Simulated scan of single mutants.
Amino acid sequence: MIETWFRTTDVPAADRFDYWHTLATGLCGPSRIDSLAVEPFHAEGRALDLGAMGVVTDSKSAFSMARSSAQARRDSVEHCYLTLVEDGLVGCDQDGRQSTLTAGEMIIHHSMSASVTSAVTTGRSVMLHFPRTLLPPVALDLLATKLSGREGLGGLVAGGLRELAVLPADRDEEMARLAGITLDLLAALCHRELGTERPAATTPAALLGQVRAFIRTHLGDPDLAPATVAAAHHISVRYLHRLFQQEGQTVAGWIRDQRLENCRRDLANPALHDRPVHAVARRWGFTDSAHFNRTFRAAFGLPPGEYRKLAQVPVPAQRVLS
Score class of each variant (00 low, 15 high):
Ala62Pro: 03
Val120Thr: 12
Thr100Gln: 11
Leu134Ile: 08
Asp93Leu: 13
Leu143Ser: 02
Leu161Lys: 02
Gln71Glu: 14
Asp75Trp: 06
Thr102Ser: 08
Ser68Leu: 10
Ser111Asn: 05
Leu101Val: 07
Val55Ile: 12
Leu134Asn: 02
Arg67Asn: 04
Leu147Ala: 04
Ala66Gly: 05
Gln94Arg: 06
Met112Ile: 05
Ser59Leu: 09
Leu143Arg: 03
Ala165Cys: 07
Leu142Ala: 07
Ser99Phe: 06
Glu105Lys: 10
Leu167Phe: 10
Ala72Gly: 13
Ile107Ser: 05
Ser69Ala: 14
Arg124Asn: 08
Val157Phe: 01
Gly91His: 14
Leu82Asp: 00
Thr100Ser: 13
Met127Leu: 09
Leu156Trp: 03
Val55Gln: 02
Thr102Arg: 11
Gly88Thr: 01
Ser61Thr: 08
Ala165Gly: 05
Gly96Thr: 07
Ser69Val: 12
Arg132Ser: 05
Ser99Met: 07
Ser64Tyr: 06
Leu164Lys: 05
Gln71Met: 13
Ser118Asp: 05
Thr121His: 04
Ser111Glu: 02
Phe63His: 06
Cys80Arg: 01
Met127Trp: 03
Val138Leu: 01
Lys60Gly: 09
Gly123Arg: 03
Arg132Leu: 02
Ser64Gln: 12
Arg97Tyr: 13
Arg124Pro: 10
Val120Pro: 04
Glu86Gly: 15
Arg132Val: 00
Ile108Asn: 01
Ser76Asn: 12
Asp95Phe: 09
Pro168Asn: 08
Leu153Cys: 07
Leu101Asn: 10
Glu78Lys: 14
Gly159Asn: 06
Arg150Glu: 14
Pro131Trp: 01
Leu140Met: 10
Glu163Phe: 03
Ser59Pro: 01
Arg132Glu: 00
Asp95Pro: 02
Ser148Trp: 00
Asp75Phe: 08
Ala103Leu: 04
